[in-house]
Amino acid sequence: MIVNYNGNLIEDSLLNLGVENRAFKYGDGIFETIKVVNKKVIFWEDHYFRLMASMRMLRMKIPMEFTLEFLEEEIQKTITTSESSEIRIRLNVYRKDGGLYKPNTNEVDYLIEAKELKASSSKSEYRIDLFKDFYNYSGLLSTVKTTNRMLNTLAAVFAEENDLDNCVLLNERKGVVEAINGNIFIVKGTTIKTPAISEGCIKGIIRKKVIEILEKNEDYSIEETTISPFEIQKADEVFITNAIKGIQSVTNYRKKEFKVDIASKISKNLAVLTFTS
């Protein structure tokens, strides 16, 4: 696999990240997961501005060349040799090597990985449950996609051990935050709720797009609010959103079975928005 390290294309087996790498040592890095379809970088502006906001929040020095156009060109350069119609991009940005907790510099390196997405058939059942071993603490730092994903990793192990497809993460107030790999929406009647950013969820790109779609739809009302796990049990539908899958309907939560009708309608609207934006 070819990766792009600071603008240089290298075989991944030849890439040498040293023991002083801060993303490895301290989780001192952030990343964007981006989908490319037929060479088009999907919702690129939204990903770019989220990346810039995250870098500013983490006091990283944004290089002068880090323009919208520059980074898109670097992504396109990375996928030049790929013949796949759908590609998963991970754009990593982390502080340069050196220092202990206090870094030697706030300047950054970047690494772009590209992996071909294989077609996968949708599962007829998609089961979730709560992950209660550890909490995702509310606050602005939790809204940033840092390279510290230990909570998500432990939840994914728990899901595997319990024959689940995903888990719901909770904050210290035991409110619903998000799923392991995406934001969560809960449907009850014509009201659709998703955890507010203040609950500690990632500022998901597809989350943002779904909210925009629903705000223009007079048939439904969208609320960004606090959600208790009890509301999942009472919901008509539940779905999860992320940049790669788009919208994933949940069919089962414990003994509760959900419909998938509204998520299917929103998926169609999202597909239109994806290729007209």
Rank of each mutant, 00 (worst) to 15 (best):
T251C: 04
I192A: 07
F134T: 09
L111Q: 05
K77S: 13
A271I: 08
K256A: 04
D46P: 07
L164G: 08
A23Y: 04
Q76L: 15
G98T: 02
C201V: 10
A53N: 13
E160T: 11
I2S: 10
Q248Y: 05
K208P: 03
L214P: 05
I62V: 14
G27I: 06
K35N: 05
N92R: 05
T274M: 13
E72C: 05
E69T: 11
T226L: 14
R90E: 08
L91K: 00
K234P: 03
E172Y: 03
N242F: 04
K188C: 03
Y5C: 04
E218V: 13
E86P: 01
G182K: 02
K61E: 15
K259D: 09
K216T: 10
Y135S: 14
T274Q: 14
I247T: 06
E107A: 06
F239M: 04
F43V: 05
F31H: 00
S82I: 05
N104L: 12
T194D: 02
S198Y: 13
F158C: 05
V144S: 04
A159D: 10
F131Q: 10
D219L: 15
E160I: 08
K25C: 11
P195V: 06
I240Y: 01
V3D: 01
P195T: 05
T241I: 08
K145H: 05
K265N: 13
G246Q: 11
S198I: 08
K96V: 06
A23H: 05
D109V: 00
C167N: 01
E224C: 15
T146Y: 07
S138A: 15
L100N: 13
K203Q: 12
N38S: 09
I206R: 15
I227L: 09
S121Q: 12
I2T: 09
E20F: 10
K77Y: 08
L169K: 09
K102G: 06
E231G: 12
N21L: 04
I89R: 00
A159H: 07
F275I: 15
Q76N: 15
R95C: 00
V37Y: 14
N181H: 08
E212G: 03
I244W: 02
S122R: 14
T153C: 10
M60R: 05
M60V: 09
G29C: 01
A114W: 00
G200D: 12
D28G: 00
A159P: 04
E218I: 14
S13C: 07
S124H: 13
K25F: 02
A263P: 01
W44S: 07
E86L: 07
L170Q: 06
D97W: 09
N4G: 07
F230R: 12
W44I: 09
C167V: 03
I75A: 10
M60F: 14
L170G: 06
L68D: 13
S82T: 10
G175M: 08
T276N: 11
I79Y: 05
I75S: 08
L151C: 03
N171I: 01
D261S: 14
E73L: 14
R254L: 08
A159W: 04
T143M: 07
F158L: 03
K265V: 15
D219M: 11
S138D: 11
K174E: 14
D46V: 06
S54F: 01
K115Q: 09
M1P: 04
L100H: 13
N217D: 15
L71Q: 10
G7D: 03
T225K: 09
N252R: 14
V157M: 12
C201Y: 02
G182L: 11
I87T: 02
D261I: 10
I244F: 01
K77E: 11
